[in-house]
């Protein structure tokens, strides 16, 4: 297994508030890796640093042997990292198909070819029938799917998924798990996901990283991590206590 992404000791502070505190982890090609942790643990900040939306204050991020920390978001995407947004950002007045076509145009200059690839991607995400619908008219679960489709259309080696299961009912979650597993298996896409839905994390991830107050408190296979007392205390137990 070759290493695809390696994050070493990255930190990010917002006016003294430490959002991410010396987090380190690595992904091999073909991994499905989940980042979990309570709200405000720094998961999205971590994502934004990898995706190029924020530059880390310290530490390095290496993707395919190349330093990407501090690189602009569009350059990171061109290298092969696709991302979704936790708060979905479809192109609201464009059709679903045009949304995905724009992603597909990253590595295809011909609009016709991009469009037909976009349709393939839409079919994979159960959105083919909705392709002519204006994105703003989609339901939330479909918008989440559109986020994944659009990112996937850029032919990423690594897909960053920021809470794509949030707000889905269990059957929809199961379907999304199935879709993501298919992408990983059939297209060889490595997946890094932030997720609160433990049902999905347990079903999908080969490895889990737990963030708490910006620090990585545990890392390992999901079955081990959920039994870790620190994790139960800071995250899972806290959820139960709520």
């Amino acid at each position: 297994m070759t290493q695809l992404l390696s994050v070493v000791d990255i930190s990010k502070r917002f006016r003294g508030l430490v959002a991410v505190d010396k987090a380190s982890f690595a992904l091999d090609e073909g991994d499905i890796f989940a980042v979990i942790g309570p709200n405000g643990a720094g998961k999205t900040t971590l994502f934004n640093m990898i995706a190029g939306m924020l530059a880390p204050d310290e530490g390095t991020i290496t993707f395919c042997g190349q330093r990407i920390d501090g690189m602009p978001a569009d350059a990171v995407c061109r290298l092969g990292i696709g991302r979704t947004f936790q708060i979905v950002r479809p192109f609201p007045s464009l059709s679903v198909e045009d949304n995905v076509t724009i992603g597909a145009l990253l590595h295809r200059s011909d609009v016709g070819a991009a469009r037909s690839y976009a349709r393939d991607v839409l079919a994979k995400l159960d959105l083919f029938d909705k392709r002519a619908v204006t994105a703003s008219a989609l339901t939330l679960p479909n918008r989440k799917r559109l986020e994944v489709a659009r990112a996937l259309a850029t032919d990423p080696k690594l897909l960053l998924l920021d809470e794509v299961m949030a707000g889905l009912v269990p059957t929809e979650t199961d379907r999304m798990v199935e879709i993501l597993r298919g992408l990983n298996r059939d297209m060889g896409v490595t997946i890094l996901l932030i997720e609160h839905v433990m049902r999905a994390v347990m079903a999908l991830a080969g490895k889990v990283l737990v963030l708490h107050h910006g620090a990585a408190i545990a890392q390992g296979p999901p079955q081990e991590v959920v039994r870790d007392p620190r994790v139960i205390k800071s995250y899972l137990g806290a959820e139960v206590a709520l």
């Binding site: 995706a51 939306m53 569009d74 950002r89 479809p90 609201p92 724009i102 990253l106 659009r150 990112a151």
Partner: peptide
């Protein structure tokens, strides 16, 4: 169109 609709999303799709 992507820039017009949402610049941050456009950049996330690799558009300069």
């Amino acid at each position: 169109l992507a820039v017009r609709e949402d610049e941050i999303a456009a950049r996330a799709l690799g558009i300069n």
